[in-house]
Design a protein around this nucleic acid. Structure first.
Lengths: 234, 234
DNA sequence: CGACAGGTTGACCGTTATCAAAGATCGTGG
DNA sequence: CCACGATCTTTGATAACGGTCAACCTGTCG
């Protein structure tokens, strides 16, 4: 333990390197390019509950999650909080305003102790001009995000709460394919916010789904899907 | 009239040039670069009501609106149509799936006779690698769109229909700043779809707003805002 | 002039938010 | 390791909100 104050005590890897190799937008690069990028990256830790950036703040860095979990949420006109997405290692944020002169419109908060790697706006722009392939990667990620976001908007605009919940559960199972049992990736409160409803309604609807035999609610935020087909037909 | 079958009879400008100069993502280029890009562009016309692309179709081109109006809409799980956005000259679409190997998730339909310029996916990728500055422009546009989309999603998730309408009207007035009177950019039916509600509800709410003195509904889809402050406090 | 899509109005009812209160769970400090 | 408080979760009662269906208007266009 040579007084290691950096965030990566677990293994001896350079945190920046770990970060870079983690991130889809950089992981196709090699050698010198990689070193150059690593030179631009700084590593920062946030404690659980800390705000990483808030609405109105100038957007001047790209944040890449190295370890931990971050939630991105917005406040609506009328002051309601809506969870926009969760970030896990490898995800990045802060880009929205990165390519234009604007401020953040959302909040980023560490849900647990979290380490992020940061790249300053100006450095990133330089890198993008130098290595166009990075832009393509970011474009791909943006287009994916746009798709998700527009889909989400359509979901809110056209589907009832129960259907939104059903689709959400079905999406969760996608990751843990085989076993039809998984742990909710967030609290039900956050899930309600994410789905544009209230904890009360979510609780009731989950009970309904359970009574109808589609799912089973187990302890510790575990859900078991008994009838995926039926769930999707709701 | 030397047998001009192209779409730009009105003025003698090359349609491709007109198109390129119209589009924010290209308008910073000059001379040879411009010519190179124009070489990759083809020009196509669509009649009112024609589908430009539909969900499930392979995404292989970027479409830039040169003249006319296009609506982008989605079908939700349960088959409801939701208007996502309108494109007017200078706007582009088709990008969502352009940077990844996927298919369109939305529909693009010409609302009036429309001319678009197209760039093939492969050509675009080439251009982007060659002229990184174009990527930055597209990134900026994407980030703007993402912001709009996420804001929209939050709006749907957290605000009541009346507030959504009020905000929409306020946004319309932003363009026509001075005079507090404007023409709705689409039919009320489409507007209802865009705002995630029904024509009936929209009609009722507009009447409510009118009776409360916030607005006045004039013939020909014209709206007059009498109390913008109040409208935003709803 | 007639047809047709768009728009309005009314009656009705399902859905979901809200408020209140009790119960479960988690993290923390003693 | 337990106890406590904070926060999350559930449940109930209630009412507002908004969708649906049906009928009727209205303007637009051939």
């Amino acid at each position: 333990m040579e007084g290691n104050h950096c965030c990566c005590v677990r293994n001896a890897t350079d945190p920046k390197k770990a970060c870079v190799s983690l991130v889809p937008i950089f992981n196709h690069l090699e050698g010198e390019q990689l070193s150059e990028i690593m030179g631009k990256i700084s590593s920062v830790s946030f404690q659980k509950g800390e705000i990483i950036y808030h609405a109105g703040a100038k957007a001047d860095s790209l944040y890449i999650v190295r370890d931990g979990k971050i939630k991105i949420y917005r406040l609506s006109e009328s002051g309601k909080e809506q969870l926009v997405r969760l970030l896990t290692p490898g995800d990045f944020t802060g880009e929205l305003a990165l390519f234009r002169e604007t401020v953040h419109e959302s909040y980023a908060e560490a849900m647990v102790d979290t380490q992020v790697c940061m790249i300053k706006r100006s450095d990133l722009q330089e890198l993008l001009l130098k290595y166009p392939s990075i832009s393509l990667k970011i474009l791909a990620e943006f287009s994916r995000r746009l798709e998700v976001s527009e889909k989400q908007a359509t979901l809110f605009a056209t589907e009832k709460v129960e259907k939104r919940i059903a689709l959400f559960l079905a999406e969760c199972i996608n990751s843990d394919q085989k076993i039809k049992e998984f742990k909710l990736p967030m609290s039900k409160k956050d899930m309600a916010s994410y789905l544009g409803t209230t904890p009360e309604t979510l609780s009731r609807k989950l009970t309904d789904l359970e009574e109808a035999g589609y799912i089973e609610q187990l302890p510790h935020r575990k859900i078991k899907i008994n009838d995926l087909e039926g769930l999707l037909l709701i």
